[in-house]
Simulated assay, not measured.
Amino acid sequence: MKQKLSIVKIGGNIIEDQESLSQFLQLFAQLEGKKVLVHGGGKRATDFSKKLGIESKMVDGRRITDAQSLEVVVMVYAGLVNKNIVAQLQASNCNAIGLSGADANTIIAKKRPVNEINFGFVGDVIAVNAESISRLLSAAFVPVFCALTHDGRGQLFNTNADTIASEVAIALSHTYDTTLYYCFEKKGVLRAISDEDSVIRRINMESYQKLKQQKIIADGMLPKLENCFHALNNRVQRVCIGDLSMLEPKAQLFTTITL
């Protein structure tokens, strides 16, 4: 019987709210079994870019990462945000270790091809070193990944944190009974964006297509759902979307994604 593993991706709005972040990290630290945390930090990177006089360029919510922007995201993601999270987890008796995809050669990516848009130093994941991550888990470490990968030839890439969470979950599902959690500021996928309690409790591929046609699921939620189904189609056992209360032992109000 496989050991249970929780992969949790934390959203930027929680990271930016210190009270919410503290509550989340306490709940995460209390999660039973082996676990991995994945985070971004885009809003903090945008703020630091502004302070440094570097213009942040976004297309459909995705960051154009030129050489200057890459320096900022490396400093913010792998430095300020990651080490703050690791320190707070250590304070909750959770033996966290901060990582990028370059550490222990855990996540390999390739530069996103230039089509209509040149995203610059943005990477698409091509391989996850499950053995390296499993060794850390077996040694009772809790890996905390920031949204950075590498190409194995010395180049770092900015990489979507939702995608990293999905690909890490897929790679580890060969060894573990894996649940993937996307934790953000909403209680789940909402039927009406203005109604915080209109959570759609369960979404499968058929209902997802209908919700897309009705424009109930749109914009930034679309790539998140695509990552969910990608994970489920590749042996991840469960995928859930909700706010930090989703991690509570008796939580009920969140969205579960199924095939």
Rank of each mutant, 00 (worst) to 15 (best):
H174W: 12
D195E: 15
T179R: 12
D197M: 08
F184E: 02
K186T: 03
V189W: 01
R202F: 12
L180P: 00
S194A: 15
I203W: 05
V189S: 04
T179Y: 07
A161G: 05
D197S: 14
Y182D: 02
E167Q: 15
Q209L: 13
T175Y: 15
I164L: 06
S166P: 02
Y208C: 09
M205I: 11
A161F: 04
V189M: 02
H174L: 13
A169I: 05
K187R: 07
I200R: 04
C183L: 00
R191S: 15
I164D: 00
A161C: 06
A165N: 09
A165M: 13
N204S: 14
N204A: 10
Y182K: 06
A171N: 06
V168P: 02
S173R: 04
K187M: 03
G188T: 05
C183H: 06
N204Q: 11
L190R: 09
D195I: 07
I170Q: 07
Y208V: 03
C183M: 04
A165D: 08
T179A: 13
D162K: 08
D177V: 06
Y182P: 07
Y182C: 07
I203E: 01
K187D: 04
C183Y: 02
I164K: 01
Y181Q: 08
I200M: 05
I170G: 04
I203H: 05
K186F: 01
S194F: 12
E167P: 01
I164W: 03
Q209N: 13
R201F: 09
I203Y: 01
E185H: 08
K186G: 06
S198R: 03
T163N: 08
L172V: 09
Y176S: 05
E206L: 13
L172Q: 02
L190C: 09
A169F: 06
T179E: 11
A171G: 08
A192N: 15
E196M: 02
S173M: 01
V199A: 00
A169H: 04
T163K: 05
I164N: 00
A192F: 15
Y182L: 09
S166K: 13
Y176C: 03
T175W: 11
I164G: 00
V168I: 14
A169W: 04
R191N: 12
I203F: 01
D197T: 11
L180D: 02
T178R: 10
